[in-house]
């Protein structure tokens, strides 16, 4: 679950957490990716304020931190939903109809890939190959994997989480 930063200000406890993560890696510049993994694991995403705090802490230009965050698809600057939906669009899933699943999720939730529903419950993203090609097409909701998904199953999957 994403931690929301109020009025672009990080609370003291959040700054302390960032410091703690940076210290785990000795503020080493070559450990930036690991630091970002740690911070995203805690905050759920990497908003500008978090990047600024990291830059300050490890004494690196914030532009460099931003450059790394935006380079790697694993890092996100927008909070994901409580139940992040990832549709695998690797080749094996694509040829078994993953694009139709993306369409169906978008239609059911009324959001595009990369967006989060207004209530913060769902977000849709696509990912490249989870390596479960035997189950193609594959959809992940949080840590749970669904295999052999058809457009008709999309509603059923969403229903599981809507009541949670």
């Amino acid at each position: 679950m994403a931690i929301v930063c109020e009025k672009d200000q990080l609370q003291e406890q959040h700054l302390l957490k960032i410091k703690e993560i940076c210290n785990t890696f000795n503020k080493d510049h070559s450990e930036l990716i690991n630091i970002l993994h740690g911070c995203q694991g805690y905050f759920g995403y990497l908003p500008a304020e978090v990047q600024e705090a990291i830059a300050l802490e490890i004494d690196m230009p914030v532009s460099k931190v931003f450059g790394v965050v935006t380079f790697y698809s694993f890092f996100t600057m927008k909070p994901k939903g409580e139940f992040p939906i990832s549709v695998c669009t690797g080749t094996a899933c694509y040829v078994r109809g993953a694009d139709k699943l993306v369409d169906e999720f978008q239609r059911e939730l009324g959001i595009d890939v990369g967006q989060t529903t207004e209530d913060g419950k769902f977000s849709i993203s696509t990912l490249r190959c989870v390596g479960a090609c035997g189950l193609a097409p594959v959809v992940m909701v949080g840590d749970k994997t669904y295999g052999h998904v058809s457009p008709k199953m999309v509603k059923k999957i969403l229903k599981e989480y809507k009541t949670k």
């Binding site: 930036l32 990716i33 993994h37 694993f74």
Partner: peptide
């Protein structure tokens, strides 16, 4: 750890990424 970039499979890019 990588962070989702296909080009990092290329060895010089991989080394850049390992350096943060």
């Amino acid at each position: 750890y990588g962070a989702g970039a296909f080009v990092c499979g290329e060895e010089t890019a991989l080394i850049q990424s390992m350096e943060g």
